[in-house]
Design a protein around this nucleic acid. Structure first.
Lengths: 223, 223
DNA sequence: AACGTTAATTTAACAGTGTTAACTTAACGA
DNA sequence: TCGTTAAGTTAACACTGTTAAATTAACGTT
C-alpha cells in the first residue's frame, strides 16, 4: 500500500468519524427525532446520500453512535473505584453510583439501546454492562474474599447488582421522580442533581438489604 | 340529554375504541414502525385525518394504547397471588413472576413507556408498577408481619423488589439471553418459554439473597 | 319546514423522512 | 491514456405526521 493510499484511508476515516460525531451531537441535543440523515449530512457539509457510503442505513449509524457511547462506560467504572480500597463495599457502591451517573448523563443512549427494534438481539458486550460486567465481577469476588459480601454464587450477585441498579435508574427515568419518592415516603421535590444523590442513597440502602454478611446484620438500622 | 344523543355518544365511543384496538394490534404485530396513522385508519375504514378528531396526535394515540395495556397489569398481579397464602414469600415471588410474564408478553409496551420522548415525565400510575405497586406493598407488609421478610422500611423493600425484577427483565430484553446466561455460568441455549422460567429462577434466587430474615440464613444453599 | 350549529369525516396539500438508482468527479496504478 | 475504484452528487420514490378547507349528516330551535 502506497503512502498516498494510507493518507486517503485516514482522510476517509476522518469523514466517517465526522459523521459519527455530528450524529452524536444531534442525538444528545434533540433525541432520535433530531437525528435525521439530512441533518447529519448538513452538519458535516455533505449530501444526505453520501452517508450511505459509510453506513449501511440509519439504524447502522445510530447503532455505532450508541455503541461508541457505551464503550466509554468501562472507563467510567474504573475511574469510579481506583481510589477506593480493594475488597471494600465502597467499591461496589461506587460502581453502582457510576452506573447511575452514566445513565442519567446518557439517557438518549439508554432509551435507544432498550427500545430499538432489534431482530437479532444485542451481544452483551454492546450494552452498558460491557467491560463493566467484568469490573463489577472482580469487585464482587474481592469483596467476598474480604468477608464483606455473603458467600453465594458470584455471577448471581453480579446479576443481582446489575438488575438492581439498572432497574432503579430506568424506573426513575420513566416515572416522575416526585411521584416515586412521594410513594416511598419522601415528599421533597427534587432537581436533577438531587435525583442523582437520591438514587445513590436508595441504591446503597438496597444493597444493605441484600448483600450484608450475616455477622453484620442488625447493627445499622434502616429509616 | 336525549336518547338519540346517548346513542350517538356510544357510537362515537365505538369508533374511538375501534381506533385504539386497531392501533394496539398494529403495535403488537409490527412495533411502533408499523403503527402509522394511515395504517390505523385503513384498518378501521376511515381516512387518516379522521383520527385527529379522536386523538390529539400520534403520541396521544400511542400513549392511550400503552396505558390501556398497562392497566391490565393490576389484574395480572391480583390473579397471580389469589390462590397463595397471605403473608407467604410465595406471594412475593408470584408477583415477580407475573411481572416477568407480563413484560415478556408486552415487550412493545415496555419499549415505548421507557423510550418515548416525554417532556413531562409520566405519573407513576401510568407505569406498570401502577396498582401493582399497592398489591406488592400489601404483600410485603403481610410477609413482614408473618416474619418472612426482614423488618426494614416497607417502601424501600417494594422499590427494591420492583427495581430488581424490572432491571432483570429489561436487561434480558435488550441483550441476547444466550450471552447473558453464558456469562452467569449456564450454557444451555434457551427459547422463549425457557427464558421465562430462567428469569423466574434468577428472580427467586435474588430475592433469597436479599429478603430472607436472619434466622433462616445459611439453611438453603445457593448453587 | 327551514335555519344554524355541531360532530364526524373527507380530500388536497405541505414539509419532512429514509432510501435507491444513476450520474459525476477525482485520484490511482497499469 | 485507459479502466477502476472511491467519494460524492442530483433526482426521484414512497412513505411519514399533520394542517386547512370543504363536505356530509344529524340535531334542536325558530
Amino acid at each position: 500500500m502506497t503512502e498516498s493510499q494510507i493518507i486517503e484511508k485516514e482522510r476517509s476515516r476522518e469523514t466517517e468519524t465526522a459523521i459519527l460525531e455530528a450524529a452524536r451531537n444531534l442525538l444528545a441535543e434533540g433525541g432520535l427525532e433530531a437525528l435525521s440523515m439530512r441533518a447529519v449530512a448538513s452538519k458535516v457539509g455533505l449530501s444526505a446520500t453520501a452517508i450511505y457510503h459509510w453506513f449501511q442505513n440509519k439504524e447502522d449509524l445510530v447503532d455505532r453512535v450508541v455503541l461508541h457511547g457505551f464503550r466509554r462506560s468501562e472507563a467510567y467504572m474504573w475511574k469510579a473505584i481506583e481510589d477506593l480500597p480493594a475488597g471494600s463495599m465502597d467499591r461496589v457502591a461506587a460502581l453502582g453510583e457510576a452506573y447511575i451517573r452514566f445513565a442519567l448523563e446518557n439517557r438518549e443512549y439508554f432509551k435507544i439501546i432498550f427500545a430499538i427494534q432489534t431482530p437479532a438481539p444485542r451481544h452483551i458486550d454492546d450494552v452498558p454492562g460491557q467491560g463493566g460486567y467484568r469490573v463489577l465481577r472482580q469487585c464482587v469476588v474481592e469483596a467476598m474474599e474480604a468477608g464483606n459480601i455473603r458467600r453465594v454464587d458470584a455471577d448471581l450477585v453480579v446479576l443481582f447488582l446489575w438488575s438492581l441498579v439498572h432497574g432503579l435508574v430506568t424506573i426513575f427515568m420513566a416515572c416522575d421522580p416526585k411521584d416515586l419518592l412521594a410513594e416511598a415516603g419522601c415528599c421533597n421535590d427534587v432537581d436533577e442533581k438531587d435525583l442523582t444523590l437520591e438514587l445513590f442513597d436508595r441504591f446503597r440502602a438496597m444493597v444493605r438489604i441484600g448483600l450484608e454478611p450475616d455477622d453484620l446484620r442488625g447493627g445499622g438500622s434502616d429509616a
